[in-house]
């Protein structure tokens, strides 16, 4: 059951996909591990999805490797999650969803970030579609994207204080209110 030409075959997809979908992804992560060694922090299988957590310093190399060698051609989504109330540090996770059109696989790549040191290198030059997503991550979470060609706010306006999707940003914010509040002022309805 070779991995290389599997994706091109469409006829026996039903037969192989259900059994080997995770296995094929695990083969990718095994190769990733041999390639990058310790810098691949964690490989997790959950709900039929595979998540790879990598160290920040190899993020761009990982992305380039996954695009060129493993043929994950498309970055479908990039976002971040703020884990402040749940676990404190490392506070942020930047999450990239990759899609391989050739092999019909989805892979999630994550980078964990400390709140004092919240930045990731840009992957714009590898996946152009990362450009607006990274601007959104900066806008919504205040995670700096190093090397981004046009790092401006994208959904809120330029003078907006704070970063709204952080967990310490209040749900009901009005101009003039401090944004560092950690507790909700209003009960949810």
């Amino acid at each position: 059951m070779g991995d290389g030409g599997m994706g091109q075959m469409t006829q026996d997809k039903e037969a192989t996909q259900a059994i080997t979908y995770i296995d094929r992804l695990m083969q990718v992560t095994e190769r990733l591990k041999t390639h990058f060694g310790e810098a691949v922090e964690e490989v997790k299988v959950h709900n039929g999805e595979v998540t790879v957590t990598v160290r920040r310093d190899i993020l761009t190399e990982t992305m380039r490797y996954l695009r060129d060698e493993e043929r994950f051609e498309m970055l479908v989504d990039a976002t971040a999650v703020d884990y402040l109330p749940l676990r404190g540090e490392p506070r942020f996770e930047v999450v990239y969803h990759l899609l391989s059109l050739t092999h019909r696989l989805r892979l999630r790549v994550k980078v964990r970030l400390q709140s004092a040191d919240a930045w990731v290198p840009t992957v714009c030059h590898i996946y152009p579609s990362a450009n607006p997503y990274e601007r959104e991550i900066w806008d919504m979470f205040g995670i700096r994207i190093e090397g981004h060609p046009n790092l401006k706010r994208i959904l809120t306006y330029d003078e907006f204080p704070g970063h709204p999707l952080r967990k310490d940003f209040p749900l009901f914010w009005q101009p003039g209110m401090p944004v560092e509040k950690t507790e909700e002022t209003f009960e949810e309805w």
Partner: peptide, 29 residues
Amino acid sequence: PGEAYAAVESARGEVGFYIVSDGSEKPYR
């Protein structure tokens, strides 16, 4: 608790939802 990404083919393209749950009644993200 956990995370999931599901996508469908909408009229415009791939609509996907990425949900992180912390085990409560509300989506964590």
